[in-house]
């Protein structure tokens, strides 16, 4: 029974993902195809005067741009199913390879930021929620609301100015030190280049989770069972551990899983500020350079990423909370 339900759940999710990917790719393909930005033009770039009309026609034919759009879409979809996402126009490499390499760098950045913002956000939320109305609560709340209005890239610029330009503690950008061979880059080098973008992303990501946790904890603290527990003499950390944490940690974790989309968006901006060679920087370059295959590839990749986060949140709820499994809530 249990196994059967799990299998059907799994297949349901796969179906959803498949439908989603088809819809997203068709939608983005139509969008990109109607763009007034000519891929051949942006490919040639500054060499415009040196390229004859015949050569242009050759390039267009080589990329299959002469065929009708619908046929192009099907061709692209067919290749995609065979694992071939096309060739990036900027990097002159298969898109899948570029994305895989870039995604690893982004993943390092995003996972650091995700864990840090989760831990600190949750802690701040708990502190604020336990002391509702106190100066600490007001401080944390004010801080979170300010952060919610802060442009993430501006925060990155401030950190860059403070730590790299003014204090000179950390490198100004890029994923690895300049002028060093790729094989000689040490782990600590990479780590030093990860600190600032990671910090930017964590500080921005923290606000949402802290406010949510605070809200939930305030609700719990005003409930009947907590009043009863207080009447029995429980307070402080014991009260928090027995009645608070169990009720608020699950929504917080699944909210944090469901925020992969914002995390990715933040990474795009942070990577741009710090010239960090991740997927976010690649998507900006692809968009500005008219690199359609790479752009589409990254759109699909980020969709899968967000879907994975949402599914993880869902599964977590179902496995941990018995009420969800029985469909009571």
């Amino acid at each position: 029974m249990q196994v059967k339900r799990m299998v059907s759940y799994f297949f349901g999710k796969c179906m959803r993902l498949a439908v989603l990917l088809v819809a997203v790719s068709a939608f983005s393909y139509i969008l990109v195809n109607n763009s007034p930005i000519d891929p051949v033009q942006s490919y040639i770039g500054a060499d415009m005067t040196k390229v004859s009309p015949e050569q242009r026609a050759n390039i267009a034919e080589y990329w299959g741009l002469n065929e009708p759009p619908v046929q192009q879409l099907f061709q692209w979809g067919k290749n995609l199913l065979q694992g071939d996402m096309g060739t990036s126009l900027i990097y002159r490499d298969p898109v899948a390879g570029v994305i895989a390499e870039r995604f690893l760098a982004s993943l390092a950045l995003m996972s650091v930021a995700w864990v840090l913002s989760g831990l600190f956000g949750f802690t701040f939320g708990v502190i604020a929620g336990m002391n509702e109305g106190s100066w600490m609560d007001k401080l944390i709340k004010g801080y979170c609301f300010t952060l919610a209005s802060t442009p993430a890239f501006w925060l990155g610029l401030l950190l860059l100015m403070l730590f790299s330009v003014w204090l000179g503690w950390l490198p100004i950008g890029f994923g690895t030190p300049a002028g060093i061979l790729a094989e000689e880059v040490t782990f600590s080098d990479r780590l030093r280049h990860l600190i600032l973008p990671g910090l930017t992303l964590s500080i921005v990501g923290l606000a949402n989770i802290a406010l949510h946790t605070r809200q939930k904890l305030v609700e719990v603290m005003n409930s009947e069972y907590v009043r009863f527990a207080r009447a029995k003499g429980e307070d402080g950390l014991t009260l928090l551990r027995r009645h608070g944490l169990r009720n608020i940690s699950l929504p917080a974790i699944s909210l944090h899983f469901a925020s992969f989309g914002e995390l990715f968006g933040g990474a795009v901006l942070a990577e741009q500020v710090f010239s960090y060679p991740g997927l976010g920087q690649a998507v900006v370059e692809a968009g500005l350079g008219g690199d359609v295959p790479l752009l589409l590839g990254i759109v699909l990749c980020s969709t899968v990423f967000v879907f994975a986060g949402n599914t993880a949140a869902d599964v977590l709820y179902k496995t941990i909370d018995p009420r969800m499994r029985r469909g009571e809530v």
């Binding site: 989603l20 983005s28 969008l31 990109v32 763009s35 968006g265 795009v268 752009l295 969709t303």
Partner: peptide, 22 residues
Amino acid sequence: IDLFLSVPHIVLLLLISFAMGG
């Protein structure tokens, strides 16, 4: 709604603005 929320916001913005020619 689900479709639009399933792509990161910035990426979607980028895509549309690319499609419109910036």
